[in-house]
Simulated assay, not measured.
Amino acid sequence: MQLNLEGRTALVTGSTQGIGAAIAEGLAKAGAQVGVSGRTEARVDEAIANLTAKVPGAKFVPVAADLGTEEGAARAVELMPDVDILVNNLGIFGAKPAMEIGDDEWRLYFEVNVLAGIRLTRAYLPGMTARGWGRVQYIASDSAVVVPAEMIHYGMSKTALLSVSRGFAKEAAGTGVTVNSVLAGPTHTGGVEDFVYQLVDKDLPWDEAQRVFMREHRPQSLLQRLIEPEEIANLVVYLSSDLASATTGGAVRVDGGYIDSILP
């Protein structure tokens, strides 16, 4: 399949590292101009330098803004007034006993993981529908369906994204714009390595720690390993292309078989 995104402009939120950086790289390889977002200019510049080394000749747009705030969202739209592909990847996560999660932390998870994507969708969707083409994606998680006992605030935020994406897909019905969520499974990133070591013996070498984590905390994974960020990016690039024109309003899985259900 030819995934040609030449002439398209994309914005990937939270794309200085991990899954977001892999998505930015994948979209750039397919020919898109890609906005790389992070909270500081230094982080964004470093990420763009790394991406440019991997995809020579690609065009990246720096978007230094805290997208978890209204001001940050306005700044992003100022820097990139029109985008064809919006990938709402920004998110925070961490383990905490359910009864210890206070009101401020519940609000923070909703603000960053849910409302940030809603703001940008409201900003960019009208332009997409007017042009008759667009792609909006929300990077959700297996935790949206299989809520982890150790981070129910994170699970709540990802479950909300399934409703948000389905609702905006209805808003965009018949316009040529698709809106989907991506159910990503346990993925190997620097942040996840830190998370794994919150739950297993910190003295274990990484390969062994990963196996213990999957066996004890994610035993339902059929892949039986952490997913690599590039594997998430492959699905996102496909959903961003013309080939996925009939896929909208969906919760599309790249979860390694983690969710024990025929449907999401």
Rank of each mutant, 00 (worst) to 15 (best):
M156R: 11
Y109V: 03
G31S: 05
K54I: 08
V200Y: 06
Y238D: 01
D66S: 10
F213L: 12
L125T: 08
Q198P: 07
D255V: 01
A49R: 08
A98I: 02
S241F: 13
K59Q: 10
A149G: 08
E105F: 00
K59Y: 11
N4E: 13
G132V: 13
D142W: 14
H217Y: 06
V237G: 07
K54P: 02
Q2I: 14
L222W: 00
P97Q: 08
V196D: 10
E41Y: 02
N4S: 13
G257Q: 00
R119Y: 09
I227N: 04
E78N: 08
E171H: 09
R131N: 14
E228M: 07
G132L: 09
Y124A: 10
G174W: 02
D194P: 04
T159N: 13
E228T: 03
Q224N: 15
A144E: 11
Q198A: 12
E71L: 10
V164T: 13
L90Y: 11
G256Q: 00
T52W: 06
S157P: 09
G31Q: 12
L51N: 12
E208C: 02
W106C: 00
L115N: 14
V146F: 01
D84E: 04
S143T: 15
L11H: 00
R211L: 12
T52V: 08
A244R: 04
E231C: 02
R225L: 00
G127R: 13
I262K: 12
Q17E: 14
R39G: 07
R122H: 12
R218D: 06
S181D: 14
E41G: 07
P148L: 13
H217E: 06
G94A: 10
D84W: 00
T69L: 15
K158T: 11
L223G: 02
